[in-house]
């Protein structure tokens, strides 16, 4: 990609990408030449992660769980199977566990090892999810970290932190907010924020 940077000081030649971009390009070239990777497969993967998935999919799942008792029961029973039936499983065969907030327990998701995340439901993780500050601290002092997100929980509600792995990813099912009685699944999905499904936020009235 010749237009990676906006540095026009180098005159007439194509704009030189930064060093890591050249190293990635080199790996790609070598692996494609060896037949270890198919450039068309890479394009399909990029399209999937950049355009086809994102937190709206997770929000749809949450809203349906709020309005469809059978679906909610299926998620409780076996999240992976319930999501697989909707075609919402990951590309790596990971197990999904939907953890349900209650007045007694608030759930928060982290990956202390790297950045495992329920990609098919939430898309690409935000930077803070991948930061050392979040990964290390949310386990040690969850209430303090949550307060930095503007979330103060009642003392009576305990906080449970779920550590994702390559094999198991978690999605928080927040409690349905008060004042949403009578709303259908589609309208409810607008209340569900990405952070509410990680546990660093709560559903919010749409702006």
């Amino acid at each position: 990609m010749p237009h990676d940077s906006h540095d026009h000081d180098h005159g007439a030649h194509a704009l030189l990408p930064p060093d890591p971009a050249l190293r990635v390009r080199a790996l790609e070239t070598l692996l494609a030449r060896k037949g270890f990777v198919d450039p068309a497969a890479m394009d399909a993967i990029l399209d999937f992660y950049e355009n086809r998935i994102g937190p709206r999919i997770g929000a749809t799942v949450v809203a349906r769980a709020w309005t469809d008792p059978d679906f909610r029961a299926a998620l409780r029973e076996d999240s992976t199977a319930a999501l697989a039936a909707e075609g919402l499983l990951g590309r790596q065969g990971e197990h999904m566990v939907v953890v349900e907030n209650t007045p007694e327990v608030h759930n928060v998701v982290v990956c202390t090892l790297c950045s495992c995340y329920p990609w098919p439901l939430l898309g690409i993780p935000p930077s803070w999810y991948k930061s050392d500050a979040y990964r290390a601290r949310v386990v040690r002092e969850p209430r303090k970290v949550l307060s930095e997100f503007g979330l103060t929980l009642p003392e009576a509600q305990s906080v449970r932190v779920w550590d994702s792995t390559a094999e198991i990813r978690y999605l928080v099912l927040p409690m349905r907010p008060e004042g949403t009685e009578g709303l259908g699944a589609e309208a409810l999905a607008d209340w569900v924020t990405r952070n509410a499904m990680i546990g660093t936020g709560l559903p919010e009235r749409p702006q």
Partner: peptide, 17 residues
């Protein structure tokens, strides 16, 4: 509910690879 985007093309490339 905004989707997170890759900040640089090479981030996306190394991820996809």
């Amino acid at each position: 509910l905004a989707a997170t985007r890759f900040e640089e093309p090479w981030h996306a490339q190394v991820f996809a690879l």
